[in-house]
């Protein structure tokens, strides 16, 4: 599957929420979309294009905005594809993919925990790797290395 084919098959469903499909090494292409069309894109990609397996969800802090990307795999085409969307830096949020691919559940919890991206309608958005009540999103660029004492006060279980 080529980027042109992805573009041709997705754009009728998504319209202006599809920002473009560009080639990406080792994959069928990198689909860039607006967060408003997230659920529609997920359903199209899973049901029409056959990418039935969600391999991972990740988030990146680019300081002026945040990017959430999804790596999906198609058993029919034997190919990966990347779906990525840019979110506003203040209060970034996107619809949860865990209703489409259940494996998104823990990945989204991790992305929320470390980069602070909220996933709307997530069934169970709580800490995965850090203790309950942890006060930071430690993979943000604005997170500084703390003095141990300061971190201790904020990390201790209440």
């Amino acid at each position: 599957m080529q980027p042109e084919e992805l573009q041709a098959r997705i754009s009728p469903k998504l319209g202006e929420n599809l920002l473009g499909v560009e080639p990406f090494a080792g994959t069928a292409g990198r689909v860039r979309f607006r967060p408003a069309g997230a659920l529609e894109l997920f359903e199209t990609v899973r049901d029409d294009l056959g990418f039935r397996h969600l391999s991972m969800v990740g988030a990146i802090d680019w300081v002026d905005h945040r990017e959430v990307f999804y790596v999906v795999w198609s058993d029919d085409a034997r190919q990966y594809a990347l779906l990525s969307t840019d979110l506003a830096a203040d209060a970034p949020h996107v619809e949860s993919a865990s209703g489409i691919w259940p494996s998104a559940n823990w990945h989204e919890r991790e992305a929320w925990e470390f980069v602070g991206v909220t996933f709307d309608h997530h069934p169970d958005l709580r800490h995965l790797l850090m203790p309950e009540g942890y006060a930071f999103h430690p993979l943000l660029r604005s997170f500084k290395l703390h003095e141990p004492e300061e971190l201790e006060v904020k990390s201790r279980r209440v």
């Binding site: 790797l129 930071f136 430690p138 997170f143 290395l145 703390h146 141990p148 971190l151 201790e152």
Partner: peptide, 17 residues
């Protein structure tokens, strides 16, 4: 004392805390 991970965001800097 936390060892090489002393300043990490997830590590207790010494179990005597």
């Amino acid at each position: 004392g936390g060892g090489p991970f002393r300043t990490a965001y997830s590590v207790v800097p010494g179990v005597d805390k």
